[in-house]
Simulated scan of single mutants.
Amino acid sequence: MRRRSTLYIVNFIVPVLFFLCLDLASFLISDNGGEKLSFKVTVLLAVTVMQLILNEILPSSSNRIPLIAVYCIGMFALMMLSLLETIFIMYLLELDRTSSSSQRTHTKYISNVTAVTSHNCINKSNKPLLYQNSSKLVEESHALEKVSDELKEMEKTLTLLLNSRKDEFKPGYWTRVAKRVNRAFFIFYVTVVSVFLAYIFLKWNNA
């Protein structure tokens, strides 16, 4: 007694194909925030439920893996790969936010150093001439000049370090990398899905 293929097409193959279309449509969702990740996890869980239903309707006495089970495993693997890519993209975006925050901190620190240096220079220039003749104040003036020179050298070093980091990773660098990776993965994903579905269709016709 042969089973009708319409049962599997209507109850399993078409719904899983709809879930695949939803997974493809999720590439239109923005990567900022966790909406895209939550959506992909929900779709993956839905395919898992469909796989549990498939285990109930398939005969357990088969000696080989049914083609419909290969179809289910392949779809699940592709959606899981898409989920991993989304996690990687979110990691790259987080790197960009972290690097931008670090650059703002370094810029604020250099500004504070510059303000301290300017303040010391103004205090040195505004001292009365009478007090500058005192030996004690002359020593303090030399000490302030030495500290001021050291602060200027520190400011130059920090500026060079910050500029080198800006040249290496400009603001938005990781975001641009994430967009390129996302675009390349989408093309790869659509290609692999098309090849896999064509393979399943050919195997089904030959069977």
Score class of each variant (00 low, 15 high):
L130G: 03
I9R: 15
E139M: 10
L129Q: 12
Y199A: 09
K146L: 07
T175L: 00
G74Y: 02
I9L: 15
I187M: 05
L22I: 02
L37Q: 06
R176Y: 01
D31I: 04
D96L: 00
V49N: 12
W204Q: 07
L158E: 10
L197C: 04
E168V: 10
S61I: 02
E94I: 01
M80R: 12
I200H: 04
T114D: 01
S148R: 07
D96A: 00
E140C: 11
D23M: 14
F88Q: 11
G172Q: 06
T117R: 13
I110H: 00
Y173P: 00
C121F: 13
F19C: 14
V10Y: 15
C21Q: 14
T114S: 08
T86H: 05
A25F: 10
L137Y: 10
M79G: 15
K136E: 12
V14N: 05
I89H: 02
C121S: 13
I87Q: 11
M80E: 13
V190D: 02
I57P: 11
D149Q: 15
L44G: 11
G33Q: 03
V177R: 11
V138L: 13
H119P: 01
L52I: 08
P171F: 01
R4W: 08
I68C: 14
Y91T: 04
K203S: 15
V16C: 14
S5F: 07
L137C: 01
L44R: 12
L160H: 12
V193C: 15
N112Y: 10
S111K: 11
L202K: 11
K127I: 10
M79V: 08
F39Y: 13
N32P: 00
Y8G: 08
C121I: 11
K170S: 06
L17H: 06
Q132I: 10
M154Q: 11
G172F: 08
V177K: 10
K136R: 12
N11Q: 05
N120C: 06
E139R: 13
Y91P: 00
I9M: 13
M79S: 13
N206S: 05
H119Y: 04
T191M: 03
L129W: 15
R3I: 08
S194G: 09
T159C: 06
F196T: 05
L144R: 03
V70W: 09
R2N: 09
T107K: 09
V16I: 15
K166F: 08
R3V: 09
V193R: 09
D167W: 02
N182L: 03
R180A: 03
F185R: 03
I13C: 06
L52P: 01
V177A: 06
P66M: 01
Y91V: 04
S61T: 07
S148K: 04
H142T: 05
T98L: 09
V70Q: 10
H142S: 15
M1K: 07
E155T: 08
Y71K: 01
D167Q: 08
I65M: 08
L197F: 06
L37R: 03
R4V: 07
K152I: 03
T191Q: 04
L52C: 13
R3C: 06
I73K: 15
